[in-house]
Design a protein around this nucleic acid. Structure first.
Lengths: 243, 243
DNA sequence: GTACTCGATTCCGTACTGCGGAACGAGTCC
DNA sequence: GGACTCGTTCCGCAGTACGGAATCGAGTAC
């Protein structure tokens, strides 16, 4: 590597701890460094608040200093705050649950969900990660480059439901359509019996930072509604989001 | 400093960027280091995904690598995930909105909210911070030591609504009662016309990590319901949470 | 169109920072 | 009581990180 070795090592240690608390010897084994090196790095990270020792002479874990810095980019809190009223609007307009998600590697991570007034509900996916190609939000994030689509399509794609698209060429064609229309529909591609429609959310630099979607049981969503009209509604709601 | 200089400098740069995107010269000025040093550190941080350059040759900002590591300690996601079904139960049982919050310094931070089926709704406080003494969740967090109550009561207390308690002695008496009963009611103490009841959520070490509450307009909540019975219901729901 | 300014990047000689093996202390186990 | 493990500390040394200087590119002013 051509970077600053100590900084690279410090982050190797931090990444190790992000998987769970561990001791010096344990971390040293996992990052293939001598214990004294790891101990010195941990001591520095502890002084900076980036790690904390759970008890003297024992295990270390990631500290609040990391969250303080990460808060600058955390899409979670402020994004959820900004978007939630729009999810309420969307749930009311469609009569189905509405949700917010962001890219998380090659997955879509569900950050928030507002339920509809409907008595028959789908489950709440907040906190879940799903492969991007299987849901409308993921397709939106791929089509609008919030997830690198070529890199994504280079891997084998998993079929999760009866209508999951797994052919890269067909998916690319679909992406062009999604970009043109400004929204994506997924009909029983993630789960049999579930449909969803999503549109991208942009920040003040016009960068796509997430997607909102509405989802419901396939038998009633979109049901009698015109799919394109619903899609435009979701895109319009997404367009009203200000971050 | 006795730590690893390069690591200390790298985090000085990161802290600088957590206040907003900046260029090499700007960061160098703020952290009092030569531009070549800052440039090299930024290059390493960029390789690690901890910062990203907004455009080539331009400003840097904190990258998603930080959030990946910080996710290990964020109380938000997994807690929200674990608690949300219980909020649904609580909203259904009380007919009012239910929410989840944690301590954030001397404030209560609302992490999640599930609305009721009621046509007349209160607003959604997700993402908001409020002074602990003014809401039932905060009183619970103070009474059960998730917030240091003596430290808290040493400061002047703000009156936000007509019934906000601001006398430290009266508040201490109330804490004893909250501990004994296992829940707290707040009647128009945060906002006139709003009542809420909260109970503590504990982790597997029996430590209080947050609170759940139900809240509604004072004219109908608790309304005809017995306040103590509702309180016990909230405490029971909180007791069913497993983290 | 040219000159100037400014910011980011690259280069390179050097010194001092970070390294890692060894030793030590504390705790645990048999 | 001895063996083992883990975290911490020490210290001689080598090579990594440093920072000043130079370079390059973009933007602006005249």
């Amino acid at each position: 590597m051509s970077g600053v070795q100590s900084v690279e090592r410090a982050f190797a240690v931090l990444r190790c701890l992000s998987g769970g608390a561990a001791g010096v010897t344990d971390v040293a084994d996992r990052v293939s460094l001598p214990k004294s090196t790891v101990s010195r790095l941990l001591s520095t990270l502890e002084d900076l608040g980036m790690v904390e020792q759970i008890e003297p002479g024992g295990n270390y874990r990631v500290g609040s200093g990391m969250t303080e810095i990460a808060a600058a980019v955390l899409p979670g809190r402020s994004l959820i705050e900004a978007v939630r009223p729009h999810l309420h609007d969307l749930a009311k307009a469609t009569g189905e649950a509405a949700g917010l998600s962001i890219a998380d590697g090659f997955d879509v991570l569900y950050l928030d969900q507002v339920d509809s007034d409907n008595q028959v509900q789908t489950r709440d996916w907040t906190g879940e990660r799903v492969p991007a190609h299987t849901v409308s939000s993921g397709q939106v994030l791929l089509a609008f480059d919030a997830i690198d689509s070529e890199e994504y399509l280079a891997q084998p794609l998993e079929r999760l439901a009866s209508h999951t698209l797994t052919d890269a060429t067909a998916i690319r064609t679909r992406f062009a359509e999604i970009v043109a229309k400004g929204y994506a529909w997924a009909f029983e591609e993630f789960l049999d019996g579930l449909s969803s429609v999503a549109a991208p959310i942009r920040d003040s630099s016009n960068r796509v930072v997430g997607a909102i979607h509405a989802h419901g049981p396939a038998y009633r969503f979109p049901g009698d509604l015109d799919a394109d009209e619903v899609g435009r509604m979701v895109a319009a709601t997404a367009g009203r989001v200000r971050i």
